[in-house]
C-alpha cells in the first residue's frame, strides 16, 4: 500500500478533517488505490509532454488596475458570528 494510517492521519490534520478509526482504515485503502494508479501512469514516458496547468486551452484574461469595489462591510459582517470595531472576531490564535 502506498499510504499507511499515519500518513492519512497527518493529511487529515492538515485539511482539518476529523475521522473515526474505521474511516481512517477505509481512506488509507482508497487513497492508496489512487496512488497506485498514479504509479502506473508514471511508467509512461512523458518527457515531451508539457504539464497541464488547466483543462481549458485558454489563457488568463487580465483586468485593468481600477478600484471597482465599494465598501460593503456591514453587509458582509451581518453574516459573521462575531465582530467588533469593524473586525471579524475568531477564537484566540497564538503564534
Amino acid at each position: 500500500m502506498a499510504l499507511n494510517e499515519d500518513n492519512v492521519r497527518s493529511i487529515a490534520h492538515l485539511a482539518r478533517l476529523s475521522m473515526t478509526d474505521e474511516e481512517r482504515g477505509h481512506y488509507t485503502e482508497e487513497l492508496s488505490t489512487i496512488l497506485d494508479f498514479v504509479e502506473v501512469m508514471r511508467s509512461i514516458d512523458t518527457t515531451d509532454v508539457v504539464p497541464m496547468a488547466h483543462p481549458h486551452h485558454a489563457t488568463q484574461r487580465l483586468r485593468p488596475d481600477v478600484v471597482t469595489e465599494t465598501d460593503q462591510r456591514e453587509k458582509f459582517q451581518h453574516q459573521a458570528p462575531a465582530t467588533e470595531d469593524g473586525l471579524y472576531l475568531v477564537p484566540k490564535v497564538i503564534d
Binding site: D65, E69, F76, G86
Partner: peptide, 29 residues
C-alpha cells in the same frame, strides 16, 4: 504599488478602517 488588489477590484490604500477594503473575493466567499 497597484491601486487595486491582485485578484479583485478592492482598494489597496493603507490605513483604511478595518475591513472596509475587503470585498467578496478577498473574503473568500
Amino acid at each position: 504599488a497597484t491601486n487595486s488588489k491582485i485578484f479583485s477590484g478592492a482598494s489597496t490604500a493603507f490605513g483604511a478602517e478595518p475591513n472596509t477594503q475587503a470585498c467578496a473575493v478577498d473574503l473568500g466567499l
